[in-house]
Amino acid sequence: MIWLDTLVQGILLGGLYALFAAGLSLVFGIMRLVNLAHGDLIVFAAFLILVTVNLLGLNPFLSALLAAPLMFATGWALQRLVLNRVLGKDILPPLLITFGLSVALQNGMLEVFSADSQRIRAGALESASVDLGPVTVGTLPLLTFGSAVLAIFLLNRLFYSTALGRAFRATSDDPVTASLMGINPRGVFAIATGLAMVIVTLAALYLGMRANFDPSIGPARLIYAFEAVIIGGLGSLWGTLAGGAIIGIAQTVGAQINPEWQILAGHIAFLVVLLIRPRGLFPRAVD
């Protein structure tokens, strides 16, 4: 029974990792850019929600609703003012810029919010649970997983049945030809990064309510997100959800055997998948 419980907890944890990863996957799919500051932006969004909760005394979910447009603007401006200038065949400049941003953000947050662990208080929700027959699961992890499924479903809808999604796909396939059809690739990139930051806000909400966070934890979230994307296969959002679940299960199983092995087990699961299926489980995009 304990193993079934571990498995379910792992899958639910995977929902959180899929939320970390969905924004990364979206941006990579459209502009082949890996944002090394992704994890730090999640932590930044978590602080933004925390500040709104503390200052305005709002419910965390409402605070996230307020933070989302701010994060969209941040992502849009980051892409428009900085990253668009260096996108090109050479992957070095965008990579190094986002790496610089990661270090700058971490230390900026350290100065403003200190190194203390913080948590977004969610009241009764923190300890609520649902009885599902053989296992009992926390309401919050269940809500996280549900949100991940919903977010990925909506992103897929956006991608495959809206005009914006068509622009995303066209730009992803060939920005030059897309611009001949009246699409402005730079504008599309900016919207995509903005959208990724909205998902980052959602991820930050659940990260902050689920566990303590501090300015230094960003890089580790980036790594989990990255692992989920690679396991799932590039360009497949449902694959990213599966990848998140695999990391989550590996971590909870590892922790069950020895608490010190939790993180290590997740990384090893990733390396094993990379060894067997270098292009991930459900690859879609080429490259």
Partner: peptide
């Protein structure tokens, strides 16, 4: 492992392996 990953993914791949080494 890392040479299986291209470009930007190579970067994070090497990072993951460094983390694994640290944890071990």
């Amino acid at each position: 492992f890392a040479f299986r990953l291209q470009g930007a993914y190579f970067a994070i791949g090497t990072w993951v392996i460094a983390e694994v080494t640290r944890l071990l």
